[in-house]
Design a protein around this nucleic acid. Structure first.
Length: 545
DNA sequence: TCCCCTGGCACATTTGAATCGC
DNA sequence: AGCGATTCAAATGTGCCAGGGG
């Protein structure tokens, strides 16, 4: 059923006016997963009709190219940007209504992959999901007019494999498959989440799915990155006989580019000065193994029978899927926030905002604020969705909604595919951006400049800072500083947790990420929390080993 | 031994301060 | 003094590579 639902939505989206690039809104009714949240839409207020919002993925063709080859995204300890960067064109918003745009990256499945025989294969069960984090667009909240004015870029979003990352980057496991999701949340009158009828919609572009790696496995991807990423220009071969190009073209004997020569010479001189036996140029064994052969198999990307060899082993719906619904008064709301103290804290700083979402699709969806003072100039503000430790159930909803703490509470990320086999096409994304204090936006106000500013103060969301477009981070975060988070479509509470680093002080994690509690939470496997994502196959070929 | 990760490297782009001219 | 254009250096973002660890 779910599959059918998801597919239907997907198909509809694909055939929409956007030529398959635009997304359509999935009515509340179409999300049977909201068992605890009445599916009857409360769209009595026209201005909250978020269903009309359409999102078009920018550079979709480029994304498709990567997707067809099996997109890989480098993740590093320091954090690595995504390329292609996630940019969208949004339409259909109420020009005067304020929205918050954010992205989260959820596991696409529960597999760990390995690149073997020039294709991705399942290598086992996925490792426990990293603490989910959300990246809130620095302009958030902003009016619909603002979002629709130009492309909305999430290019500064960074991915990391550092489980204790203090910068708020999205934490991922290497060799795992992920699916970015865009969430558009309607901000309340206080520019925060949490109004009684907070509505949001989620947009998923299947072609943005990727496998996280610490180094590129598929040379097709490497080549695409080099060819399209300006920062990788230095690796572009000046002559068409470039080694990588030649390899991609299926040439038997690749030509070494000047860059390759330089790199190897340098390496040879600096590290292997005494290793005269090591070939430095064309005769270098590694050259052959790396560019001419793949796992002992001759590379031939032009081989018509090979096109899918590098693809993800899963069939996916080429279209995107997204859900949209409106929270009702008696259901959990999107609540944002940091406690008042946080709002009053000193200025924060970065235009980048990260929120941490639920740690694992295996675990409940709780969101704990995860704030930190960035060590670097970006000074990102992070919020994390932590599982609840309170063990409180649905009855915590009131507590949450009544909380005056301005913390971001989001539903945890949900996995795709397998875990949703029994689920419903419901996107268990819930967030409470509360601003009970009645202060201005918890999320930074749109800033004229996207440039990050060095900040010595803790990043704390306060009205002043927000107005300046500067994120603010709670000064002294603690598990009790933020309100319990709500998860999924059910009432769940949790303790907030965040990273906080005072100026000049070392990074001080307030919570052990490795010890996320899972008890008292609802497994995503539960039908109510499962949703089907019509991940399609655009040529991508996944192979189960 | 293999696989994966890390840190350093060079190169290109981006950013912002400093400088100059009007 | 103010403004805009230009220049320059630092910061940042890339992929590549060798080496290390499990």
């Amino acid at each position: 059923m779910l599959q059918e639902k998801g597919s239907a939505v997907t198909d509809e989206c694909m055939t929409g006016g956007g030529g398959g690039e635009e997304t359509d809104v999935l009515p509340d009714q179409s999300r049977p997963g909201l068992s605890t949240a009445p599916s009857i839409p409360t769209s009595s207020e026209p201005d909250q009709n978020i269903e009309n919002i359409k999102v078009v993925l920018h550079e979709r063709e480029l994304w498709k190219k990567f997707h067809e080859a099996g997109t890989e995204m480098i993740i590093t300890k320091a954090g690595r940007r995504m390329f292609p960067s996630y940019k969208v064109k949004v339409t259909g918003m109420n020009p005067k209504t304020k929205y918050i745009l954010l992205i989260d990256v959820v596991p696409a499945d529960d597999h760990r992959y390995k690149f073997c025989d020039n294709k991705w294969m399942v290598a086992g069960k996925a490792e426990p999901a990293m603490p989910g984090r959300l990246y809130v667009h620095p302009d958030s909240p902003a009016t619909g007019a603002h979002w629709m004015r130009q492309l909305v870029s999430f290019q500064k979003l960074k991915l990391t494999n550092n489980h204790l990352d203090p910068f708020g980057h999205i934490i991922l496991n290497s060799m795992h498959k992920y699916q970015p999701r865009l969430h558009i949340v309607k901000a309340d009158e206080n520019n925060a989440f949490g109004s009684k009828n907070t509505a949001y919609c989620t947009h998923v572009f299947n072609e943005t799915a990727f496998i996280s790696v610490t180094s590129y496995q598929n040379h097709k991807i490497t080549q695409l990155k080099i060819e399209n990423n300006p920062f990788a220009k230095g690796f572009r071969g000046s002559e068409e006989g470039d080694l990588r190009v030649s390899r991609l073209q299926g040439k038997e004997y690749p030509v070494i580019s000047k860059n390759m020569v330089r790199q190897r010479l340098i390496s040879s001189h600096s590290h292997l000065a005494g290793k005269l036996g090591a070939g430095v140029l064309t005769g270098h064994p590694q050259v052959l193994s790396s560019y001419q052969y793949e796992s002992g198999v001759p590379l031939s990307n032009t081989d018509p029978q090979d096109p899918i060899s590098n693809h993800f082993p899963q069939n996916r719906d080429p279209s995107l899927l997204y859900h949209c619904f409106k929270h009702r008064d008696n259901t959990r709301h999107l609540e944002l926030g940091c406690k008042r103290p946080y709002l009053d804290a000193s200025s924060g700083v970065s235009e980048e905002h990260y929120f941490r979402s639920a740690p694992s699709y295996e675990s409940p969806i709780l969101s704990h604020p995860y704030c930190t003072e960035s060590i670097n100039s970006r000074e990102a503000c992070m919020y994390g969705a932590m599982e609840t430790e309170s063990g409180s159930g649905a009855g915590d909803t009131d507590d949450l909604t009544n909380s005056s703490i301005n913390c971001n509470m989001w539903a945890t990320m949900q996995p795709y595919s397998r875990y949703s086999m029994e689920g419903v096409p419901y996107q268990p994304f819930a967030a409470h951006f509360t601003n009970a204090a009645g202060v201005s936006p918890v999320v930074p106000h749109p800033s004229s400049s996207m440039a990050s500013r060095p900040q010595s103060d803790l990043g704390v969301y306060n009205s002043a800072t927000a107005q300046r477009g500067l994120p603010v981070i709670p000064p002294s975060p603690s598990s009790s500083s933020c309100p319990p988070a709500v998860l999924g479509s059910r009432d769940r509470s949790g303790h907030s947790a965040l990273y906080n680093k005072k100026p000049g002080s070392p990074i001080r994690p307030h919570r052990d990420f490795s010890a996320y509690p899972t008890q008292g939470t609802i497994s995503i496997r539960e039908p109510s929390y499962q949703y089907q994502v019509g991940l399609s196959s655009t040529g991508t070929h996944w192979t189960d080993s």
